Amino acid sequence: MTVAMIGEAQNLPASLLLVGGGKMGGAMLEGWLKVGLPGSAATVIDPHPGPDLQQLCAARGVALNPASDTIAPPEALVLAIKPQVLAEVGPQIAPLVDSRTTLISVLAGKTIANLDAAIPGCGGIVRSIPNLPAAIAQGATGACTSPGLAEERRAMADALLGAIGVVAWVEDEGLIDACTAVSGSGPAYVFLLAEELARAGIDAGLPEELAQKLARATVAGAGAMLAQSPLPSGTLRENVTSKGGTTAAALEVLMAENGFRPLLRDAVAAAKNRAGALSG
C-alpha cells in the first residue's frame, strides 16, 4: 500500500468530465479548481444540479450540462453517481469516452469489472472510495487500478484524488470494500461518537448546550491532535490515561470484552459486507 498527500497540479488532466455533481462530486470539483485545474478544462453532467454547483460552474467557467454532441472524449472521466444507477447511466456515458479516457469511480461497491461492463472502451479504470471530509480537503481515499494501468494515468488519478485529502493506494481490489467500511463510512462513526458523548454528558448532569459544545470540541481536538502527531493512536491513548484515574475507569468499560472493540469490529464488517453486496 502506498499513501500520497495533495496531488500535484502538473499531473492534472487536460480535460475532465465529471458525471454526478452532488455533495461528493461538488467537493471534488471545488478541490480540483483550487489546485489548478482550469475551469475551461472541466465539464459537469448532472440532471439536477444544486444551486452551489450551478454557482461554482458559472463563477469558474465550467461547462454544466452541455449538449452531448459537443463533448469530446475527456482525458479523465470521474464518476460520482449513486451506485444503484450505474446500469442506467452507463450506456448514456459510454459514447462520450474512448481509449484515451481514464475512468475514475467513487462508487461504493462497484467493482472494476462492473465499471468496465457499464462503460466499455476506456483506456483504464481507477476504483476509489473517498469520504465526506473531502468537502474540506481533509478526506481519506482508498484506491486501486485496473491491471496494467499506465503510470502517468495513475499519477493523474492521484493528483485528482489528492486534491481532496490523503490517498491510500492498494494493489488488491478486494481491499477496497474494507476501505469503504473503515474510511468511507468512518466519519459517521466519529459523528456518532460525538453525538453519544454529548448524550452521556447530559445524563451525567451537564446542560445540553454545554454537553454538545464539549463533546464536539473534544472529538475535533482529538482528531486534530491525531492528524498532527507522529505517535500511534494507541500511544496517544496511553499518554492521557493515568493509572487509577478517571480516564482509566472509563476505558475499563469501553475496552471490556463486550465493549467498544467488538462493537466497532462488527460495524465495520457489516459495512464491508454491504459494500460487497452492492456489486450485484
Rank of each mutant, 00 (worst) to 15 (best):
S128V: 07
A143Q: 05
E196L: 13
G280S: 13
R60M: 02
I119A: 02
R216D: 10
S15D: 00
I125N: 09
S68G: 15
A270P: 06
V3F: 07
L197N: 02
A113T: 06
A267T: 09
A72N: 11
E238W: 01
G109E: 02
A134H: 00
A269F: 00
C57V: 01
S15H: 08
A117R: 09
V170E: 03
G184M: 04
L53G: 09
C57E: 05
S99L: 05
A249K: 04
I125R: 06
S128P: 10
P49F: 00
G162P: 12
M28I: 12
T246K: 08
A67K: 13
P13G: 09
L193M: 14
L161Q: 13
V253M: 11
A181E: 01
A59C: 08
A42S: 10
S185W: 02
A87L: 07
A220V: 13
S242G: 12
A188P: 04
L132I: 05
A4D: 15
G139Q: 06
P207Y: 05
L149P: 10
L231V: 00
G39P: 09
R261W: 08
A143W: 00
I176S: 07
G244S: 06
A135W: 03
V240N: 07
E152C: 10
R100V: 09
P47A: 11
K272T: 14
M255D: 05
W32D: 12
A27N: 11
P51I: 01
E238Y: 07
L37T: 11
V170G: 09
Q138V: 05
A137N: 13
R100S: 15
A42W: 06
V106W: 02
L96E: 01
G31M: 11
D203C: 13
V89E: 04
T111D: 05
P130A: 09
P51E: 03
P133Q: 08
E173V: 12
A181Q: 07
Q212G: 12
A222M: 02
K272G: 14
T2I: 14
D266I: 07
G31T: 13
T246D: 03
R274N: 04
E196A: 11
S185E: 00
A227D: 00
C144E: 01
A67P: 12
F191V: 12
A163K: 06
K213G: 15
A67D: 10
E196N: 10
A14N: 13
T102G: 13
A59R: 03
A72E: 03
G139S: 09
A157R: 12
S229H: 01
L192S: 09
V268K: 04
G90H: 10
L107M: 15
L251Y: 03
Q10K: 15
D203H: 11
G124I: 00
G123M: 05
V89S: 01
A157C: 12
Q10V: 13
